[in-house]
Design a protein around this nucleic acid. Structure first.
Length: 420
RNA sequence: GCGGCCGUAGCUCAGCCAGGUAGAGCACCCGGUUGUGGUCCGGGAUGUCGCGGGUUCAAGUCCCGUCGGUCGCCCCA
């Protein structure tokens, strides 16, 4: 039987989240949604698949993500559907569909969920990966940009990830701004094509901004002298960017201006930012975001500015290292010696659980030593021991596993005794 | 999608170069006299050596293919 035919293997680029990492993963999601909610970003859930046009029109057909990486399929009703490769376009689609933008602005939403892209898997790069993110829609004030960025930065710090914030403005699509800059950049590149690395020459026409990302030495040398977007912003975009920066300065959010920062999705404009961290190999971004003032319109809706970010949960987990301990949800481990005691233990555990106390017991008929070992490994603070003596007297022995102190208490007192 | 490296017990890995019937540490289970964990000591279970094919009397070891992982490119979270 070939490996391919074995059914008990996760598909390429996917993985199973198992204890104890799964608990850590869940606590990150909880922390994220909590931090976001406390900044006014309320949870939203959108479908895992969308009409393919949502991404083609929203993210842009020219982008690598839409062009080569989407899981697109035709369903039995002959519709073209796509497993979402990112979260922003679906959220904006939902806002438009339900007219949330007719209410108070900005609409502030937060999401967490799996995204799908068919890329070659690598550390920190999976075909199904989890993102958490927020979107602030309906307002183009710099304060919204600064708020979104600060929330992201603070959440990452609370999650234990040291990140550097890279910040840029990529202007807007007008001859007075980014288009004019692109012309200047193209002129510059055309004059220097011969000096570029061979692999990069084609990009001059397809996606000139991407030449900034090249790691080819020849290209990097050329790009040092290339014109930079921030020198070509129109007055409005320059003022906006200035506003964002001064607000970030006010609230003490440190950032590095990175005039060569480009984002991969077509809808981005003006503010663009990225959170980078070490330990991720060639995937050094734990997340990023930016302003997408044209997105709602390209989906066919009203003009609606917006800004948001997405953070990779898988990458956060990798970047924060593995010295994080999630506290055990168990408070008591009930140890039973003998059949009669085992029956009583089962009742006691149920009673504890009903009272909201974390409780567990041995179900594999282990020896007492084995059960004590389980108690210790479970992370519970208390071992509650039941044997012939206790059964006869209606008592239970409560042992504090951290101090090793123990005492006999009335079995009816167990709940208050372990409630802390 | 392209190139390099790797794939042996639940985990981390040795064994492969110079083919001869599978190992260590950790984890797991039992025990160290009659009811006490985390330390120590003794014992035990566990592998289609990723998968398929080839060479050979003999393949975990050599060759080819394939799947998967990983690193770099690309792209991005």
């Amino acid at each position: 039987m070939s490996e391919e035919e074995r059914s008990f293997r996760a598909p390429r680029g996917t993985y199973d989240l198992l204890p104890p990492a799964s608990a850590e993963w869940q606590s990150i999601l909880r922390l994220a949604m909590d931090v976001f909610a406390k900044a006014g970003y309320q949870p939203v859930e959108t479908p895992i698949f969308e009409h393919t046009e949502v991404f083609e029109r929203g993210v842009g057909e020219a982008s690598e993500v839409v062009g080569k990486q989407m899981y697109t399929f035709i369903d039995r009703g002959d519709r073209s559907l796509t497993l979402r490769p990112e979260g922003t376009a679906p959220v904006v689609r939902a806002i438009l569909e339900h007219n949330l933008h007719r209410g108070a602005l900005p609409v502030k939403l937060a999401y967490a969920g799996p995204m799908f892209r068919q890329e070659r898997p690598q550390k920190g790069r999976y075909r199904q990966f989890w993102q958490v993110g927020i979107e602030g829609v309906g307002v183009d004030a710099p304060a919204l940009d600064a708020e979104v960025i600060e929330v992201g930065k603070r959440f990452l710090a609370m999650a234990g990830v040291e990140t550097e914030l890279l910040l840029n403005s990529i202007g807007h699509l007008d001859a007075s701004c980014r288009l004019g800059y692109l012309d200047a950049l193209r002129d510059f590149l055309h004059a220097r094509t011969a000096d570029l690395a061979e692999d990069d020459r084609e990009r001059v026409n397809t996606n000139p901004l991407r030449t900034f990302d090249s790691k080819e030495r020849a290209t990097v040398a050329v790009m040092k002298d290339a014109p930079v977007i921030t020198d070509h912003l129109c007055d409005d975009c320059a003022t906006h960017f200035e506003g964002v920066r001064s607000l970030l300065d006010d609230i003490g959010v440190a950032y590095t201006l990175e005039p060569r920062l480009v984002r991969g999705l077509d809808y981005y404009m003006r503010t663009a930012f990225e959170f980078v961290a070490g330990g991720l190999g060639s995937q050094n971004a734990v997340g990023g975001g930016g302003r997408y003032d044209g997105l709602a319109e390209s989906l066919g809706g009203d003009a609606l500015p917006g800004i948001g970010f997405a953070l990779g949960v898988d990458r956060i987990l990798i970047a924060r290292g593995d010295d994080h301990v999630t506290p055990s949800p168990l408070d008591v481990y009930v140890v039973a010696v003998g059949d009669e005691a085992a029956r009583t233990a089962f009742r006691v555990v149920t009673e504890l659980r009903s009272a909201g106390i974390g409780a567990d017991l041995d179900l594999a008929r282990r020896s007492m030593k084995g059960q004590m070992k389980q108690a210790s490994a479970s992370g519970a603070r208390w071992a509650a021991i039941l044997g012939d003596r206790e059964i006869a007297s209606g008592k239970i022995t409560l042992k504090d596993l951290t101090s090793s102190d123990q005492k006999e208490i009335d079995i009816k007192e167990i709940v208050p005794a372990v409630r802390s």
